[in-house]
Design a protein around this nucleic acid. Sequence first.
RNA 1: AGGCGCGUAGCUCAGUGGGAGAGCGCUACACUGACACUGUAGAGGUCGGCGGUUCGACCCCGCCCGUGCCUACCA
Length: 847
Amino acid sequence: MTAKQELAKAYEFKEVEEKWYTTWLRDKTFRATMEEGKPSFSIVIPPPNVTGVLHVGHALNNTLQDILVRYRRMQGHNTLWVPGTDHAGIATQNVVEKQLAAEGTSRHDIGRHKFVERIWQWREQSGGQIINQLKRLGCSCDWDRERFTMDEGLSRAVREVFTRLYREGLIYKGDYIINWCPRCHTALADLEVEHEPTDGKLYHIRYPFASGDGYLVVATTRPETMLGDTAVAVHPADERYNNLPEKAVILPLVDRKIPIVFDTHVEMEFGSGALKVTPAHDLNDFEIGRRHDLPAVKIMDDNGVMNEAAGAYAGLDRFACRKKVVADLEARGLLEKIEPLQHGVGHCYRCATVVEPTLSKQWFVSVKPLAEKAIQAVKSRRIRIHPASWENTFYDWMYNIRDWCISRQIWWGHQIPAWTCEECGELIVATENPTRCPKCEGSALRQETDVLDTWFSSALWPFSTLGWPDETPELTMFYPTSVLITSFDILFFWVARMMMMGLHFMGEIPFRDVYLHALVRDAQGQKMSKSKGNVLDPLELMDKYGTDALRFTMAAFAAQGRDIKLAEERIEGYRHFINKIWNAARFALMHLGEVDAGVAATVADRDDLSLPHRWILSRTDRAVTEVVPIGHGGGDACVHLAQMHEAEAGGVPFVTEEIWQVLPGERSSIMLEPFPEEHEGHLDEEAEKGVELLMGVITGLRNIRSEMQIHPSAAISSLILCPDADRARFIEEETETIKTMTRAESITVRRETERPKGAASYIHSDIEIFVPLAGLVDIDKETAKLDKEKEKAEAQLRKVEGKLGNEKFLANAPAEVVAKEREKQETLSATLAKIDANRQRLSDLKS
RNA sequence: AGGCGCGUAGCUCAGUGGGAGAGCGCUACACUGACACUGUAGAGGUCGGCGGUUCGACCCCGCCCGUGCCUACCA
């Protein structure tokens, strides 16, 4: 044995993983090269939240990225994988707020400055956790370039973008109905609101006409909002309301006279066809209010508690108020009925509190002009989305896009770079903190307290991480990035917004291919969540099965559709496979001298090599050439990832490095080696055909042993009937191999012969293999088996003959298909004849 | 309500118009000098249902059933 060291009997991943990752980090093996004249390949990581710990989705996402990165690195590209994390505004703030609550204090008690300081502290100590976990996963990121969405450089990019958009008129401040979370105390974007079907009640309330008798009935699920009603709307085509005595009603409890307006938004079929209009607390009502110039009365404060405008109800929580309003209406005989109703109720995606639509001053991005460019980029195929089925969803969303509310009333994030002059009221937007008002020279400037939506900074990720707004060499070399790999659930949150920002500020797409992978669910298809207790922790899985096994499992899921149901057994299976690679390597090392000779072999000395070596070289060559390069020219990253499983460049980095390093000679990391290429003369069809033939014969003999239940140690002899002269000679030359593999005592090869009586037979293409059954064989059982085989073959033959007897088939089917059917017919007939002969031999044996 | 998926072996999934596949599981047998994280062999499927197109359908089309997700929500 010429190996450098004795190899452990089983692959011990723990030591190997630790050893190599430490070495890679020490040697900075992942560092991006920036050499002239080489093609470049770059990926920016979807930055995980600093609050996060690694979950299986991350494992999938980052394994796929790492495979591409390692493959390109081996191909000699200037390869950069930018790692980093996201500050995740609301989520992170919530975590620290919970800590404060546990300490009996709150952010309001300690104040903004201290609170933000506290979050930074928390980020320092545990925010890097996920980075370490990515390292554990073997990710080959250029760690010297790690970025954070709130680091200095990125914050500069954020201010620059905000200022430019403001000057271009694409950012504005305005009144709008926003989704307000009374617990998080912040506005939520539409995307951040989750609608859950909830069993609620539909209250039918009588609104008396302003004069005379009678009333209109309106229906609502939120009766407390009536306190803020400023109109009742009916459909202009609704005949019931064409001839109203008066176009006003008295708002009960409040005793306010409010108009009846006509608006087509009202559904005539729903309830009574009359809709109460609360412009300050409902988006649709807000729009009706705008159309009819209605006032908006805000009746709640930021905590969801009724304010002075609610009159007698002021100070009540919104749900308590609801009860009281209903009770009061009932007492006055104004509640017509209450019906059960299931309807969607919006919840905060972070804390699940019922959101309250509220009128508020917020900052917005006018996204329509930006969206247009993104749509064009996808339509023109400059950006390709894989799988392409997502394109329609993408267009649908982009065409119907609404202005993006970017202000958040929280403290953790990029504070909006806008100031109001307290003296003249001038609004100043600037990249640097201003000291004087440019209009009145006043120095009392007050900065906006709101911060930006988290996605505002991550939208800039592909260029901000490369040094923008400076014109850095990195931007020149690595922008646009090559591929973006992410999960489809953030296609709109993140991917679309990166497209918009990249196109607008770089004048160039941010990435060429977007590969959307599936969502990992548990083995039952349920979404993984801590509350369900079905979370598979990737760290535990790596402890149990090794990183390579986990990664291989992830890679196998690359082409999966929308859901991945992860069963732990699958990972275990791949651990076995990794171990198989390991032991195959040990086996190879035992014969290293020969293998070395083989690797160096050329066509000239092919004859010196043994058949198995020629075969192995040929098969290896095939495996290499059949790997399809990823993302190359109009490539489809999705399909190509799926085709990677044969060679799996970079899919299993640890075991391959370990094996590579125990090979003789001094070696640098395998990941810096050129990716294997086709070897001149290795492809060897003769060897492949030969081995295939041998395998057929060996399988046949083993099969007979197994089928006839001949004890493995029992000696058998075999007669092989092979009509083809070359093949017959070949088998004869290889009889020793066959004997070894099958424990046969003797092998006789004939080109023609009488079929022996009392022998089992097996057919491999044109070859027939006989083993005389001298002794204990259950003849009846074997006969039954043969009958079953015969039945199958006959059924197939009937099918084939049916086709061949069909004139239309003969007329319409392509010639090669017909020929194939003819061939099939012959083979089947021959098989049937042989089965019959076998049966005959069995009965001969019996008598 | 609209949109997008999915339904193939016990389980998880491949399979883009001409002989139903893989892994795991299961059954039987074996070995212990690369490997029990093993080897060899085997059983197991009206490809959700009905209809259509075609010489021919797991594959294309229509309808139905079941199931999952996304978007918008009739207050």
